[in-house]
């Protein structure tokens, strides 16, 4: 096992440390996403970022992949922040519309991506973590520092608005602005992370570690801490297993997260009996 870890660090350092960084960041942001009951938004944003990535293969959107993905995701967050407060269409219906259309347009645009063949685009969209480039890794480092830093600096403001936006507003906190700031940060993290490791891994990290931590921990700080630890540990174990059993790395990492969640569920069941 140690040999596999040494091999991974030597041969695929960006994949190894990059997936740990994505796991840490998404597992941290995911706690608030799960607490706000907007998990579906996480799924939607991963698909929107993939759509943004696809668009960069088209001649009329000639931006670097990460910039394109980031731009489309952040614009979508801004639009959703307006649409999700309306009362005419239920919130999950709005998200469903964006989800379905993002996937559909991605497929359509992919067919028209003349610059490269479909297999290459698919490969990039799937986010093969073993082929993370140094450039992408450093972009992820930037996103990691900005998103995690802002979340830690303004932890109490984000927490207050997520818990009780109405009272926060009476105290002078601009609840909608804080909400938008959180979603923009989360959207930014999701866009960069999806480009790097793919939608499956990002969505998995957004949901599985936070839920496992919520089952095991009884204080909010410990939930964030354990979620981040699971986010770091899962890719390490997942990559080792993927190498050992010669299986794809992303599903292996998500499977590890799921097993940790299953253990947490059983432990919680035993404890509450």
């Amino acid at each position: 096992m140690i040999e596999i870890v040494v091999l991974l660090v030597r041969e695929f350092p960006f994949a190894f440390f990059g997936s740990m960084m994505v796991g840490m960041l998404c597992a941290f942001v995911g706690v608030t996403i799960v607490a706000k009951r907007v998990v579906f938004l996480g799924a939607v944003l991963t698909q929107v970022s993939v759509l943004g990535l696809t668009l960069t293969f088209l001649p009329f959107f000639p931006l670097p992949h990460t910039i394109g993905s980031l731009l489309v995701t952040l614009v979508t967050v801004m639009i959703l922040s307006q649409l999700l407060t309306g009362k005419k269409i239920p919130r999950d219906a709005v998200l469903g519309v964006v989800f379905a259309s993002s996937v559909a347009f991605r497929i359509l645009f992919m067919q028209k991506a003349a610059r490269v063949d479909v297999a290459e685009v698919e490969n990039l969209l799937r986010g093969d973590i073993l082929f993370v480039t140094p450039d992408l890794f450093y972009v992820m480092v930037g996103a990691f520092v900005i998103v995690l830093g802002a979340n830690l600096l303004f932890f109490k403001e984000f927490a207050y608005v997520a818990f009780d936006s109405e009272t926060a507003a009476t105290q002078g906190f601009h609840s909608r602005a804080w909400d938008l700031a959180f979603y923009l940060l989360a959207g930014g993290a999701i866009a960069v992370a999806t480009h790097m490791v793919g939608d499956l891994l990002v969505f998995g990290f957004l949901v599985l570690p936070p839920v496992a931590a919520m089952l095991l921990m009884r204080s909010v700080k410990m939930i964030f801490l354990l979620s981040v630890i699971i986010g770091v540990v899962s890719p390490v174990i997942g990559l080792i297993l993927a190498f050992h059993f010669d299986v794809p790395s992303s599903p292996a990492i998500v499977a590890v997260s799921f097993l940790i969640l299953a253990f947490a569920w059983v432990a919680n069941l035993v404890r509450t009996r």
């Binding site: 607490a35 818990f163 919520m214 204080s219």
Partner: peptide, 14 residues
């Protein structure tokens, strides 16, 4: 301000 407590949807164990 003391809001209606039903409006608080506490998922996290504050």
């Amino acid at each position: 301000y003391v809001p209606q407590r039903e409006t608080l949807d506490a998922v996290l164990p504050y």
